[in-house]
Amino acid sequence: METLQNTHVKLLAFDFTSLTPSSSQPKSAVYRRGTLLVSRVETLGIVTSRDHKPDRFLQFTIDDGTGCIPCVLWLNQLTSPYHSRRSPPDVRLIAESAINFATLIQIGVSARVRGKVTVYRGIATML
């Protein structure tokens, strides 16, 4: 089984939307066409939707002309239990950079996005 789990694999949206969840591998891994195992993806496109919940998340869509990729940028680092295990200065830095990215993500801008793939309600989503 070929695996590219430790790198951000550049995928077009039509390829991304055809990813299938992996059953045997870790939860965060998905298959590209049943053969290549990936968990991190990079893509480039235009932001076509934006739903901002301050201090929680920014949900947006990237359209590259071959399809749309739903993305989530978490903004809850200062309140989530997951981050409470890390050092507070690190968490503050992560939270600040997430807020900066959230202001850059506006409808109509061209954005290059990197993230982990998860399957949310049956749809591959980039986090």
């Binding site: 939707s49 739903d51 869509t61 359209d63 002309g65 749309c68 949310y120 749809i123």
Partner: peptide, 12 residues
């Protein structure tokens, strides 16, 4: 997810 229903604009 609401954003998933937005159609992609084909490059023309």
């Amino acid at each position: 997810m609401a954003s998933a229903s937005i159609p992609s604009g084909a490059l023309v």
